[in-house]
Simulated scan of single mutants.
Amino acid sequence: MDIDKRDQALIALLQKNSRTPIIELAKALSVSRTTVQNRIETLQRRGIIKGFTIEFDPEYNLKLLKAQMLINLTPGVSRTVIKQLQAKPQITSIMSVSGIYDLIIELTVEASSQLDQLVDDIREINGIEKTISCVVLSKY
Rank of each mutant, 00 (worst) to 15 (best):
1 M>T: 12
2 D>Y: 14
2 D>P: 07
3 I>W: 11
9 A>E: 15
10 L>P: 08
11 I>E: 03
13 L>P: 12
14 L>Y: 11
20 T>N: 03
20 T>F: 01
21 P>W: 00
21 P>S: 01
24 E>K: 12
28 A>P: 07
31 V>W: 04
31 V>L: 02
32 S>F: 10
35 T>S: 08
37 Q>D: 10
39 R>D: 15
40 I>H: 03
43 L>I: 08
46 R>K: 15
47 G>H: 09
47 G>F: 11
50 K>L: 11
54 I>F: 06
55 E>I: 04
56 F>L: 14
59 E>Y: 06
59 E>W: 06
64 L>D: 09
64 L>I: 05
64 L>G: 08
66 K>Y: 14
67 A>F: 11
68 Q>T: 12
69 M>A: 13
70 L>Y: 15
71 I>C: 02
73 L>K: 07
74 T>G: 00
76 G>R: 05
77 V>T: 13
77 V>W: 02
79 R>Q: 13
81 V>I: 03
82 I>K: 09
82 I>P: 15
85 L>Q: 12
85 L>S: 10
86 Q>T: 01
90 Q>P: 10
90 Q>I: 00
91 I>N: 04
92 T>W: 05
93 S>Q: 14
94 I>D: 10
95 M>D: 12
97 V>T: 10
102 D>E: 04
103 L>W: 05
103 L>C: 02
103 L>K: 05
104 I>M: 00
108 T>A: 12
117 Q>K: 15
118 L>H: 12
119 V>M: 07
120 D>W: 02
120 D>P: 01
121 D>P: 11
123 R>G: 08
126 N>T: 05
131 T>F: 06
132 I>G: 03
134 C>M: 14
134 C>N: 15
136 V>R: 02
139 K>T: 14
